[in-house]
Deep mutational scan, measured.
Amino acid sequence: MAEQVALSRTQVCGILREELFQGDAFHQSDTHIFIIMGASGDLAKKKIYPTIWWLFRDGLLPENTFIVGYARSRLTVADIRKQSEPFFKATPEEKLKLEDFFARNSYVAGQYDDAASYQRLNSHMNALHLGSQANRLFYLALPPTVYEAVTKNIHESCMSQIGWNRIIVEKPFGRDLQSSDRLSNHISSLFREDQIYRIDHYLGKEMVQNLMVLRFANRIFGPIWNRDNIACVILTFKEPFGTEGRGGYFDEFGIIRDVMQNHLLQMLCLVAMEKPASTNSDDVRDEKVKVLKCISEVQANNVVLGQYVGNPDGEGEATKGYLDDPTVPRGSTTATFAAVVLYVENERWDGVPFILRCGKALNERKAEVRLQFHDVAGDIFHQQCKRNELVIRVQPNEAVYTKMMTKKPGMFFNPEESELDLTYGNRYKNVKLPDAYERLILDVFCGSQMHFVRSDELREAWRIFTPLLHQIELEKPKPIPYIYGSRGPTEADELMKRVGFQYEGTYKWVNP
């Protein structure tokens, strides 16, 4: 592979701008107003304001973009700056750019259920340069409990009458099928589907988006991507930290609602779906819905739930269990780990287990898709061969690698495990991989909904998990304890083995 010439960040961002501006969906010269509902909250200060700053800094926003914060707290732009700027990672050389960014910011205080507050917000936006005809993007960085009041008031008082209007809704989209349907029906009564952007930030990850290209742009994968060759698929999300004093919020939802029903299920769809007619948003989402419709409700015998306990040999936070978090209700049975087996009941995947695993306070930070292939028929190497695996590593250190057998150097035919490896950090030294939120917010500006969740996708996802969630809430089974920093409950490994996964433990990928 030829040595790549190092590029400056300015040059890299210039390439990104060229890609972005050559499309006809990006209205570079139009006025846009980006409204952050819930501007005083954690999500706004840690993710949304920093993301908008990065896009502005790199010249990736339309030229005439204004940012308006809205929340109940009586704040000023200076207050917003004070709480969000520490997350910007701005350099001293960017000081003038930073001043320009905050000059485009404003803030309006108001209630979430008060019509007069929204009329005041609308008047404020109209007073901005060309504000009355601007395109408006409303980001709901809010708890779902206020979605209905907020969307109703936005629709009645704050819509642009000339430009387009788009609304970005953060997960969780309800707690179960019934609450999700209620919320979807409410929002759909106010906005068209092409105006609604239900954001799952995992769909903005580079390697998640790469799944489609790997599958449908490489001839070698087509013939082997089926039940005849693939023994099982494992989708993993692991965090090495616990709730760390923020367990009160987590306890309301648990690990299945927080990660599995959305992030992991979306990745499953991209692995299992048929080739779409095109890369058009609805063509892709149509195929994802077909996959979900082929999955039956989760069966309790295919589920393992766990909850982390303190590690007596650990240090600091590792010595504390979930129930030691003062914000967690006493005696909570909320799971911090889950392993679930699903089956896609169609011709391509009949009988292939899709194993979804996620948890907190585990032994490493990792998100990946792992396809394990069947054993080689007619073994001539005296059971020395391990199964081939194709691994798409989402985070950290984005990579695609194939675990395969090669001859060990020497005189004899002794096979050993090795890999074919594409590590993004080595291959793409001159490429700026956008943060997931950067990519998705740019998608909203461009009107691309491919990486957002459609209402029928959402409904099918909740259909699969709601009976299990209701059973857990009714019966309150005690989750299996696992030690902070471990791989999780051993019962999860036993479940995976029972459905056909072979864990060798003899080879570990190392970032080159």
Rank of each mutant, 00 (worst) to 15 (best):
S180Q: 05
L61C: 09
S84C: 05
M159N: 13
M212V: 05
R227M: 15
G247P: 05
R72L: 03
L60N: 07
E156L: 11
F237D: 00
G38N: 02
R57W: 01
A116N: 07
R198G: 01
P86I: 05
F237K: 03
L211I: 11
D30Y: 13
S180H: 05
M37D: 00
D181C: 10
S132G: 11
V108L: 07
L20D: 14
P92C: 07
I187K: 02
V108H: 10
T51V: 11
N229P: 03
G247K: 09
Y70H: 10
V208M: 12
M125F: 10
P144S: 06
L130I: 07
G14V: 07
I15K: 14
P50K: 07
R219E: 04
R227I: 03
L214A: 06
F173A: 03
C158F: 08
I196A: 04
E63W: 10
I162D: 14
F216R: 01
V77Y: 11
L211P: 02
G204N: 00
I168G: 12
E206N: 05
D200F: 03
R74P: 10
L55S: 08
L75E: 08
I220G: 06
H32R: 15
L55K: 03
L43F: 01
Y202R: 00
C13A: 06
L7R: 14
L61A: 03
M37L: 09
Q111V: 13
E99A: 04
I220C: 14
I52S: 04
G254L: 01
E252H: 12
L177M: 13
R219V: 09
W164T: 13
R257I: 03
K171Y: 00
E193W: 01
F221K: 00
N226Y: 05
G110S: 07
L96W: 13
G69M: 05
A71K: 01
P240R: 11
R81V: 08
S189V: 06
F191P: 03
T76A: 05
D30A: 05
I15V: 10
D194M: 08
N126C: 12
A6T: 15
R57M: 02
W225L: 02
K46V: 04
I33P: 01
S29K: 10
D42V: 01
L190V: 07
K205M: 03
F221P: 03
A90H: 06
F34C: 13
P144D: 01
I15C: 13
G23P: 10
